[in-house]
Design a protein around this nucleic acid. Sequence first.
DNA 1: AGGATCAGCAACCTTTGGTTGCACATCGCT
DNA 2: AGCGATGTGCAACCAAAGGTTGCTGATCCT
Lengths: 119, 119
Amino acid sequence: MSTVIDDELWSAVGDPIRRRMLDLLLADGRGTATTLSEQLPVTRQAVAKHLGVLDRAGLVHGTASGRERIYAVDEAQFARAVAQLASVGAAWDARLRRIRTIAEAIQRTRDARPPTDPS
Amino acid sequence: MSTVIDDELWSAVGDPIRRRMLDLLLADGRGTATTLSEQLPVTRQAVAKHLGVLDRAGLVHGTASGRERIYAVDEAQFARAVAQLASVGAAWDARLRRIRTIAEAIQRTRDARPPTDPS
DNA sequence: AGGATCAGCAACCTTTGGTTGCACATCGCT
DNA sequence: AGCGATGTGCAACCAAAGGTTGCTGATCCT
């Protein structure tokens, strides 16, 4: 159920700095490596590398404008990404629920049949 | 909204091998480093390290049994984790929806007021 | 007892996230 | 036009994480 494409997405979103970057870009609409780094605990260059990762994952898109490069969230791609993450979460949730159902069934069986006490 | 605890969770779940390990453990109920490595493209030692990460994150729990160490998903913790992931996803989703609403409002404004054509 | 199997180090390599330092382009102001 | 200020990109370097091989030690099984 998990594809190779998912891997790039999860690893992009798995980094705490990159998650905060996405939050900032969503809140402000856009940002540059410099403006983002001012609101983050890492240097401008680190942010630039992260922007590269997010760009390659398709989550953001950068546009050159004069001497600065402005990044913004690619809404369509990001929406697709959120949906994929949600679907994995839903799959796990379903799996958990199934396990619990089985556990309850076993419990009921155990209740119906008294324990084999070695007497 | 994102806490330090979340960071450990996301990075634990951000690794593709660790996600597949969780899938396998959920499917089979339990597993050892050896049995898991047989179903994964990495060595037993790599799997052991990943199990350590998942253990420290509280997602799985290992029990010594004879010469083998059996791991299983900690259902309660894992359920909590899935819920946290879902809540972040929901927050992003809400943010996206709000942005789209604003975009539509601007679009309506633009429709109502004809473009300022430089004639 | 003794071979087979499983886990746990330890050393080493590569990739990734992070830093500093520097060179280059663009903006803005006199 | 000239020049400092600002923003970017590239390279070298460092530390941590993911991965490997090799070995040792414990347990199982016949």
